[in-house]
């Protein structure tokens, strides 16, 4: 009985391997049906995870990208939403990057948004704020939402993202709309985090970006105040609470 099970498992494993081996030259038509199905599922999944990128490059390019991505990164968890992390790197090394260098940043932006939108929200432990009244600020640390990520771009990725997300799938932004976005100056620093109701994107300035990085690097409140003496901590903590960025102080 157990020998039979191993044999079936071996067969299943080999079969899956053949399906995932997208360049298989066996030419088996039955296998090709499964492979085509895999490619279409991969492309649709990537389009869901990267809707703005999909609008920008079109269906055919998404098919090619998903095909290449399957070679670099196989789905592991059984949930297609977990798949696609390596797409920004793949685009960076593709022919698309020379002509459309902003696509890498758009893809990175979308992946971070995708991860945050699937993350659990943690409500603020307001009692822990009392730690700010403690003497030992060297031992007081701010804990941010686990989903909070910050990223930089030299392109107006937030504007491009908003413009495309406000269109239906079939609509393409006009040249004038794209020019307006490209000519609009953004700070180039973005924070994306899961809030109580929505996934929020906030454009921040350099000083706030560095402050957040300091928190993520594990600096204590005392160290943060030493390194960023001009930063308005009081105003920031109020706005960070409103933005659902802080879970607790420890």
């Amino acid at each position: 009985m157990s020998g039979g099970n191993i044999s079936v498992m071996d067969y299943q494993s080999q079969f899956l391997n053949e399906i995932y081996h997208v360049d298989s030259t066996l030419g088996d038509k039955g296998l090709q049906v499964y492979q085509n199905n895999l490619h279409m599922t991969a492309m649709l999944s990537l389009t869901v995870t990267y809707p703005v990128l999909a609008q920008m490059v079109g269906e055919q390019a998404m098919f090619v990208l998903s095909h290449r991505l399957l070679r670099a990164e196989l789905p592991e968890s059984g949930d297609w939403a977990d798949w696609g992390q390596q797409l920004p790197a793949l685009i960076r090394n593709s022919e698309l990057n020379a002509e459309h260098p902003y696509l890498v940043d758009i893809a990175q932006f979308e992946w971070v948004f995708h991860l945050a939108s699937r993350s659990q929200f943690h409500a603020l432990n307001s009692a822990s704020l009392q730690r700010l009244a403690d003497e030992a600020l060297e031992q007081t640390f701010i804990t941010l939402q686990p989903s909070l990520k910050y990223l930089r771009s030299s392109y107006p990725v937030h504007g491009l993202w908003r413009l495309h997300r406000s269109q239906t799938e079939q609509e393409v932004p006009s040249r004038q709309q794209l020019e307006n976005v490209m000519n609009h100056q953004e700070t180039g620093c973005y924070v994306i985090a899961q809030g109580a109701h929505n996934t929020n994107i906030v454009e921040v300035y350099e000083d706030e970006f560095n402050w957040l990085r300091g928190i993520s690097d594990g600096l204590s409140v005392a160290a943060l105040l030493d390194i960023f003496p001009a930063f308005d901590f009081a105003a920031w903590i109020a706005s960070a609470i409103q933005r659902d960025w802080i879970t607790h102080l420890e």
């Binding site: 600020l137 901590f233 903590i237 109020a238």
Partner: peptide
Amino acid sequence: HKHAIAAAALAMALTTVVSA
């Protein structure tokens, strides 16, 4: 100075938590 800033931050934070 740092404790004064932290105290101001605490006051602002508590006001935000209560008023929201």
